[in-house]
Design a binder for these strands. Sequence first.
RNA 1: GGGCGAUUAGCUCAGUUGGCCAGAGCGCUUCGUUUACACCGAAGAUGUCGCAGGUUCGAGUCCUGCAUCGCCCACCA
Length: 1036
Amino acid sequence: MPPTTQTELPSQYNPADVEAAINQRWRDAGADHAEPTNPGPPYAIVIPPPNVTAALHLGHALNNTLQDVLIRHRRMCGDNAVWFPGTDHAGIATQTVVEKRLLMQEGKKRTDFERDAFVARVQAWKDEYEQIITSQLREMGCSCDWQRQAFTMDEPRAKAVREAFFRFFKDGLIYRGKYLVNWDPATQTALADDEVEMQDVDGNFYYMRYPLIGPPLSTGENYVTVATTRPETMLGDTAVAMHPDDPRAEELKDRMVLLPIVDREIPIVFDNYVTRPDPDSDDPKARMSSGFLKVTPAHDLNDWEIGLRHQLPIINVMAPDASISVDHGWPAGEKPLDNPDVKPLVGLSREDARKAIVIWFKDHGMMEEVKPYRHAVGHSYRSHVPIEPYYSDQWYLKVTDDRLRGAALRAMAPDQYAGSYKAADGIGGPGPDGEPRMPSAASYSGHLRFTPARYAKTFQTWHENIRDWCISRQLWWGHRIPVWSKTFNVPADQLDKQIGPQHTGETTQAYENDDGTFTVYWVMRDLKPDRIEAIESAGWAQDPDVLDTWFSSALWPMSTMGWPQDTPELETWNPTSVLCTAREIITLWVSRMVMFNLYFRGTLPFKDVFIHAMIQDGFGQKMSKSLGNGVDPFDIIHSHGADAMRFTLTSMTTHTQDVRMPVDIVDPHTGETVTPDFITTPGGHKVAAPTQNHSGKEMVSSFGLASGQAAPSDDAPLARNTSEKFDLGQRFANKMWNAVRFSLGNLTAEPGDGGARALPDRWVLSRLARTIADADAALGRYAFAEYATTLYDFFWRDLCDWYIEAIKPTVADNPDQQHVLATCIDASLRLLHPAMPFITERLWQGLGDAWPRRGVAGLALPPSELLMKAAWPDADAGLIDEDAERDFDMIQDVVGAVRELRQTHKVPPRQVIETTAKAPAAIAQKLLEYRSITCGLANTIGRGVGPDVDKPAAAAVAIVGAIEIYAHGIVDTDAERQRLTKRADELAKQIKNLEGRLANKAYVEKAPEKLVNETREQLTAAQREAKSVNDQLAAL
RNA sequence: GGGCGAUUAGCUCAGUUGGCCAGAGCGCUUCGUUUACACCGAAGAUGUCGCAGGUUCGAGUCCUGCAUCGCCCACCA
């Protein structure tokens, strides 16, 4: 560790000299580790596990800084505080990144590997990025309990996943269902909803005529016209739907149409979902609608739901690659290959099939109209091809069950629950028998509360509109579903005998197939090799799919603590204290953790949810890899230091929704910061134009490299990103560094006890006491910016600008004052430690060497090996000294007034001026008493203070309340006249305003008395000052 | 389509339950380095609080409408 005396400290703070050594000290001391048996109230946070897809960016830095602020604060407060770190395997995202990399670097596709070999490659990627992420968190100073580091796919977590799956399955909450999934035909995998990107696409609305079977309508028409953007799916149509209130409905009751090309007879059904045509409507759908909707249950989610309501057949006409196929559910009875119109379509891509079908309708005179239409189409976030809703077998978790959804809604804090769901809906109220539904509200440990409160609505709305959760994914990277299946061709009553006995931790579900056979699904909680071998040799095969990545994330607050075992960790720390996350995953993650924790343990996973802002770039765009506007925390640590980054992020965290972070580039050779030019992409995004360094070479951001998005090349020097936003924290760190340098240089006496206090000492301790209270209150409300600015203002404005300046003339010879100084510095370092752990720890160690005992009556600052483990300051309210604050306010006003006079009259800084002050006796007495402070601060000789001082001619004058201050021999008459005139104008305006307010009868009668009195006092003061100013003007 | 947020100084943003003569940081102007810190200090300038109505003694703050920007969600007629 570097030397600690003032003379040996450099005059500028260099984070690199300090951070690693301090980190090492914490680690050596095991300061971040906690055991459930430790004393103190439990306080726990589980990290939102970052995806191992890529290195952390600034959003993570923000997220983790805030958690660390909370953890360090509570740890210092004496709580048994623990922070569980870890990472998420991020199923599809990680698999995609690795697949891309393999294709780019080795020209290989996933299918070129055996499953195990491919998983091993992803595992290697995970190991690399888990390592990077861990070191990023460490370098940021995150005081995670690293002994407890977890990964969502390691063995303890896998165990938790299998337990949860088994219990849900056994309780009938996991079921096998056919459903439409978001299918990516290019990569042939199912995507989660959040993996689908909506893009506006220019397409067409096709109006196609389907012939009516039977007599024509009264209008003479013998067809109905359906409107669609997807003609090619008509091959799978099983109905035409119309609104029951449509005027044509009566006539079309019980009618059938003949599906063109296919010659399938399909019914007309009536469904409220259909939008009726209205050419004048604001709704583009109504303007485009023909009133008839083709229903293709296998290829459109809405149609699927209509199909369910009307028991329509489901006909899948596509292969997994989205080409037209008769082999994936087309009814064999239709003999499609014998149909000369269908046969040429088979094997065509969906795009070609669309063209062919459009031509067919045109050729047959059945294409009524084609209108251009721009609409949103889901695209794969991986391959960027349009998503195909695809009909397939999947596993579902019945989150709509009251035990999950209902429990989650009932766990909300009553004042944050908008209560639109009534008991009749099965949610948010008692069950039919009037009893609370399980788990009962009484079993919750408190309620779930969101900060800012508005996010409770997001949570609630999501739950109210939730659908059952498709938890299977056609991937290789993830928790393999612990289900084995086998099909039996036996009568139902013989099924049990055929299946055979099940061991503990095993259970089955049987489903009857269309052909009367049964498929049985066998779940195994414990993957014992001999059992697996036994059932596999009996013909059972394991499901090839894996679980949605959020399934294991949902268990995170439990699985990190050893669930399903009953561990002391769970007992002590679950529910955790707060979940700190961004709003984008309220639905995907927060909701599911709440449901799972309530279901398995009957408790909430956390009591508070704090949702912080999202960091956008300088143009209000979300930071993303594809835009290249992300910033690696390492870059900021490099350019500004970890503490500067943390402090700035903390002070940016208000309860707003977004914050902007303009991104600059650091030239790797010169170290200069370059603000790149920006260009607008066709998609309307602003991206950095290629930026060249001093030698004309294009610079590549290190974020892009760290995220595996760009390959390093010799020509592209590695550039770091930065942002001037972080200058704030850097300057503040430097200020702290130097204030402590000054203090160390002045703590020379034998330690006193701070017993004899001058005004500045009483004042600063009073301000400190208030600051402590404000900081505690702010952190308690998750008002991080308020916490940061409160301390910034105290340290910089009160302590440095006023207190230290005020004591400079006296501190060297005053041990008591030195003690107060040491105490204030100590307390400030403690208060700032959660936000700026490195520099505060470093300086605090130095302070300990110079002045071992700090603290005053009413403010204990007990010693500690490490600041990290030191006690949070707890100030007695008795330290608040109203008199001292009032007196010091006056001193500040007087000093300010003299400074203004000096500036206005252009008095050279070194020139000492003589002043006299005329003030009421009581104030004059105080001015005399505190004269040393004002002189020290304003380079002023105060003399002749008193009520009887003669008003001198030819002096500059400043008026502060009841005090008139005369500065002799410096008068610049013009400047003085100008200044006084301006002031007189201001006062006149103010007086008019105040008089107007008091003349308003309603104001005097209705406004609080205190306020009215205040106004009267203001008026009196203003009038007094105005008189004084006018007298002075006259004298000039 | 539904929901949420933002709009305050040149820039980035604070402004808790309505009581301001509207604040901070950066930037700008002037002055100042044998002084803890020039990553500093002092003084100063800069606002129709997006627009239009309304409630109120009093509105940046509450209500209504409008405009612009952004985010999240959503099911491709």
